[in-house]
């Protein structure tokens, strides 16, 4: 199970990066990057998955004593939580930038913003 998730996660990342680096439209780049970060999150969570175990909630179903043998690794999940929110933060910032760049130059093509070079 974890391997499939990881494979698809990696595939998502590669697709995301390829999309971001070939598409010249700013918005499409941001979309591609958000897909890539989703892929990263999938890979992260798949790392923590141990076959045949349940979610890390110690309620009635998971008694305290046998918890260590029943739950999956909670640490990657905690990391992913933070990563998703950070991903959103960066995406929102890039959107604001894209919008402001569009208003400034009336174009969404990244190759129009090359005054700073050499």
């Amino acid at each position: 199970m974890a391997e499939i998730a990881m494979m698809s996660g990696f595939a998502l990342i590669l697709l995301g990066i390829f999309g971001a680096l070939t598409n010249r439209n700013l918005l499409r780049m941001i979309v591609a990057f958000s897909i890539a970060s989703t892929g990263v999150n999938v890979v992260l969570v798949s790392i923590g998955y141990l076959p045949g175990r349940t979610a890390p909630i110690l309620d009635a179903a998971v008694p305290l004593e046998s918890a260590a043998a029943q739950i999956v690794d909670p640490v990657p999940q905690a990391l992913v939580l933070t990563a998703i929110v950070i991903g959103l933060g960066v995406t929102a910032l890039m959107l604001a930038y894209a919008y402001s760049l569009f208003r400034h130059r009336k174009s969404l093509d990244i190759s129009d913003f090359t005054e700073l070079k050499w």
Binding site: M1, S46, G48, Y49, T54, A55, Q77, L81
Partner: peptide, 8 residues
Amino acid sequence: VLLAAPDV
């Protein structure tokens, strides 16, 4: 959900 990570 399948990877037993409800929060995420």
